[in-house]
C-alpha cells in the first residue's frame, strides 16, 4: 500500500511538472480592436429618471479617443476547454455562471461570454421594475423574468442555440449580450485591448464579434513563449 501511495505522489508531481512545462512553452494572443465608428449620442431618458438619470450613454458602440473599441469579443477557436487557459485580468472573462446586473437602468456588463448550456444569474440594484428578456438572435425568447425589486437574483439556463440578446421591457433602451461559445474568448476593455494567455503553440482562427460592427476571421500562428500581437479594425 505504501509503495502504491508513493507511486501516486510521484505520478502527481510528474504530471504537474509536465503541465507546468507545457504552460511554460505556451504563447499568448494579445491585441487591440479599433474602429473608425464613433461613439453614439447619449440616450435621453423619460422614464424612471430618479433611478436612471436624465440621459444614459448608448453603449452600442463604445470607442475611446484613439478609436479603440470596447465590448468587442475575441474568440480563439480550437482551444477547448477555455478553463485551462488563464484569461487575462482586466478583461471580462467567461464565468461559469455569468451574472447580469440591472444597474441604473443598464445591463452590467453590457457584453459577456457564456458557456453553452450555462445557467445565468440576473439581478437588479434598482428599486424599480426591470425585466430580463433573453432572446436568441432569431427572435426566439429563452426567458423573460421580472425583477421588481432590488436584490432579487433569478437563475435561468440559456441552452446552446447561439448568442443571447438581452432587453428590458420597461426600459426599451437597455441592451445586453451573452456571446455563447465553448472556445477561449475575451471581451475587450475600455482601451480596446484583449489578451489570451497560455495558448499552446499552433495555428488558430481568431473570430471577432461586436453587436454593431464586423470583421473577418483571421488565421494566426502562436509561437512558444512569446505573445502574438495584432490590431484588428472592425467596421
Amino acid at each position: 500500500m505504501g509503495r502504491l501511495f508513493a507511486l501516486g505522489i510521484l505520478g502527481t508531481i510528474a504530471c504537474a511538472a509536465l503541465a507546468s512545462a507545457a504552460f511554460a512553452q505556451a504563447g499568448s494572443v494579445t491585441g487591440t480592436i479599433t474602429t473608425t465608428a464613433k461613439s453614439l449620442a447619449p440616450v435621453r431618458v423619460t422614464i424612471d429618471q430618479k433611478v436612471c438619470g436624465a440621459e444614459l450613454a448608448d453603449q452600442a458602440v463604445v470607442v475611446d479617443a484613439q478609436g479603440r473599441l470596447a465590448n468587442a469579443v475575441v474568440v480563439l477557436t480550437g482551444v477547448k476547454p477555455f478553463d485551462s487557459l488563464t484569461l487575462a485580468q482586466g478583461k471580462r472573462a467567461a464565468a461559469a455562471e455569468p451574472t447580469i446586473t440591472n444597474d441604473k437602468c443598464a445591463f452590467a456588463p453590457r457584453v459577456q461570454i457564456a458557456r453553452p448550456n450555462a445557467n445565468v444569474k440576473t439581478t437588479s440594484k434598482d428599486p424599480i421594475l426591470h425585466t430580463t428578456n433573453a432572446q436568441l438572435e432569431n427572435g426566439r425568447t429563452l426567458f423573460n423574468v421580472a425583477l421588481p425589486i432590488a436584490g432579487l437574483t433569478i437563475t435561468k439556463p440559456i441552452g446552446n442555440a447561439g448568442n443571447v440578446r438581452l432587453s428590458c421591457n420597461t426600459h426599451p433602451w437597455m441592451r445586453g449580450w451573452l456571446v455563447v461559445t465553448a472556445d477561449a474568448a475575451v471581451v475587450t476593455g475600455a482601451d480596446g485591448r484583449f489578451s489570451i494567455d497560455n495558448v499552446p503553440p499552433g495555428t488558430y482562427e481568431l473570430r471577432f464579434w461586436h453587436e454593431a460592427l464586423k470583421s473577418a476571421p483571421q488565421r494566426i500562428t502562436v509561437a512558444a513563449g512569446k505573445p502574438t500581437d495584432l490590431t484588428v479594425q472592425m467596421k
Binding site: 428578456n133 425568447t141 426567458f143 423573460n144 423574468v145 425583477l147 421588481p148 432579487l152
Partner: peptide, 16 residues
Amino acid sequence: GPGVGLSPEMPGFEDS
C-alpha cells in the same frame, strides 16, 4: 406571456 401562448414581452413573476 409565453405560458399562455402570448407575447414574450410580458415577463414571468413566478420567481418574485
